[in-house]
Design a protein around this nucleic acid. Structure first.
Length: 464
DNA sequence: CTATGGCACGGATT
DNA sequence: AATCCGTGCCATAG
């Protein structure tokens, strides 16, 4: 069904494989860049406005997903519907420009990346010349919302004094998510701390602990830390408790620690998802709908004019031929990528349906290797397809796709549930017994590790 | 003596 | 080949 009407049998060249691989490992926004640069550098490639379904190549009326493909689910009727979803409104502005024409708030996209999100907040308060600085800073954030370049470099590059850069940065840090644009996790947390201290009381050692003891804190060496700072153990524990509960060292991460189910908090999206999973018209009894984001609408194809031009003899014939082949290869690889992604998600969603609908407890342990044999592809294919991609669940949470392959997440959440319900602080060995009773055999040491991962304090300093 | 964290090793996973 | 993860052992705090 993928075969085209053109009988151009293209052998599986190494170039083909290599490019498919790289395309597969790109996230949606990276893919957009890739396509754009390819489009710009290769005259034989053309983007038509015509909307076609990337799955079946039928023309589409609007921007909506293909109705034929959506309704015609190839597998079981109760199975999820998986399709490629083209959207050109995906990334409103990739490299944020400092232009004034940013005021198109009427078309608020559902998802917005972190730089855009922050820029929109501060833009009104920043005078135009500083906006360039702001935009520049914001394009150099990592996934966690921390700055990846030194402010000094920015100052030099833009020929402005340091304090200008710092003032802009300060403004960014006080936008949502609080602390974004910090250089270190410490700095981010201090910003949050300052903000919180205006409305509530803070354990008095908190600031000192953050400033001087983050490494020890993350290793939970409370007593050593108390010794180093010359204060009581209780002070350190109080501070630690406060920090894990209220501060987020990685402002860019959408969630940290607590996972309240019925949370009404403004669920913001800081990183555009590569895949969106939802229920058909939000009805949880309906089957799942899986959209694999294609960052550009329209159809990518080989420019037919170019193909014709090749028939005529020309001195550039060799170059043109070269371009043409590259273009054909590119669209083919892109199709290949979409096809693989679709098969992957189809299977993944089928396996982890309970997890998607009912939460982390129901995540089934799954390895990329086992999926690869089911789909009859190489392991590395799955790895590349999964890594650096994010998925939006029906509850609007965005998670890395690798979470679907987390070996121990279900155990960790069960563990959390037990501890939440505990009447009396349970020691690690007691927890082992309880888990064993539920059919999970794990070592005591492992329980301790899981606790640490979830940021749960040891038994002797938990209280009802 | 018990509970827990650090370190490090081996096997699984990527 | 490199990395991740579960575990066992031992030191240390309470």
């Amino acid at each position: 069904m993928l075969q085209t009407h053109r009988p151009v049998m293209r052998p599986l060249t190494t170039a083909h494989l290599a490019q498919t691989m790289t395309l597969l490992s790109l996230s949606a926004d990276e893919l957009k860049q890739q396509i754009e640069s390819e489009l710009a550098s290769n005259p034989a490639l053309e983007m038509t406005d015509e909307r076609r379904c990337p799955n079946c190549q039928r023309p589409l009326p609007g921007n909506s997903p293909c109705p034929t493909c959506s309704s015609a689910s190839p597998t079981a009727p109760d199975d999820a519907i998986v399709f490629i979803s083209p959207r050109d409104d995906f990334h409103p502005s990739h490299g944020i420009s400092s232009d004034e024409d940013q005021a198109d708030d009427n078309v608020a996209p559902v998802t917005e990346d972190l730089p855009t999100f922050v820029f929109r907040q501060i833009a009104p308060d920043v005078d135009p010349q500083k906006r360039t600085i702001a935009a520049y800073l914001l394009t150099h954030l990592d996934e966690d919302g921390l700055l990846t370049i030194a402010p000094v470099e920015v100052a030099q590059y833009h020929h402005v004094p340091m304090d200008v850069v710092e003032s802009v940065r300060n403004m960014i840090q006080h936008a949502e998510p609080l602390g974004v644009g910090s250089i270190t996790t410490q700095e981010a947390m201090l910003v949050q701390l300052d903000h919180l201290s205006e409305s509530r009381s803070i354990p008095h050692m908190t600031r000192t602990v953050i400033e001087q003891g983050m490494d020890m804190l993350s290793r939970r060496q409370y007593s050593e830390l108390a010794h180093k700072l010359g204060c009581s153990l209780r002070d350190v524990k109080e501070a630690a408790q406060f920090i894990t509960e209220n501060l987020n060292p990685f402002p860019g991460r959408s969630h940290w620690g607590d996972v309240h189910e019925g949370e009404n908090a403004p669920l913001q999206v800081y990183r555009s998802p590569d895949v969106i999973i939802s229920h058909i018209n939000e009805d949880s009894t309906k089957p799942l709908m899986v959209e694999i984001i294609m960052p550009l609408a329209g159809t990518l194809r080989v420019n037919p004019l170019f193909r014709n031009a090749l028939r005529q003899n020309s001195e550039y014939k060799e170059d043109w031929k070269n371009d043409l082949e590259r273009a054909a290869l590119f669209v083919k690889c892109l199709q290949q990528r979409n096809h693989t992604m679709r098969r992957l998600m189809q299977r993944l969603v089928a396996i982890q349906k309970d997890f998607i609908d009912h939460g982390e407890v129901y995540l089934k342990p799954l390895t990329r290797a086992s999926l690869s044999v089911e789909l009859e592809v190489h392991e590395s294919t799955i790895s590349r397809a999964v890594s650096s991609k994010t998925v939006q669940l029906p509850n609007r949470r965005i998670i890395p796709m690798s979470k679907f392959f987390d070996r121990s997440l279900n155990l960790r959440t069960i563990l959390k549930n037990i501890i939440v319900q505990e009447g009396h602080p349970l020691s690690d060995s007691e927890l082992v017994k309880l888990l064993d009773a539920r059919g999970y055999k794990i070592a005591r040491r492992t329980v301790a590790k899981y606790r640490a991962m979830e940021g749960i304090l040891p038994a002797h300093l938990r209280h009802a």
